[in-house]
């Protein structure tokens, strides 16, 4: 990596790190701006539907875990 040429990307990483650590509200606002609440829900639904499908698959094969 050519650090001199790509210094701006290091600054970008530092900015993202600071934003995530120090300004969660602003991070959420930026996420809402870029993904929208509908977009965030859609990604979440995709992740969870796959979890649920995998879970249902496991239950179908091995049965429900006994408490």
């Amino acid at each position: 990596m050519d650090v001199k040429k790509q210094r701006w990307s290091l600054w970008l990483f530092a900015a993202v790190l600071l934003l995530r650590l120090l300004a969660p509200a602003e991070t959420e606002a930026l996420r809402d701006l870029l993904l929208g609440s509908a977009g965030r829900q859609a990604v979440e639904a995709a992740c969870f539907s796959l979890w649920d499908a995998a879970d249902a698959d496991v239950v179908a094969v091995f049965g429900k875990a006994q408490p």
Partner: peptide, 22 residues
């Protein structure tokens, strides 16, 4: 192996938006 600034920028943007640990 080389990287471009765009690669690191895309990584930083992904990290910023990633609330699901993807």
């Amino acid at each position: 192996v080389t990287t471009t600034g765009g690669f690191w920028a895309a990584l930083a943007c992904f990290w910023l938006l990633d609330e699901w640990d993807l």
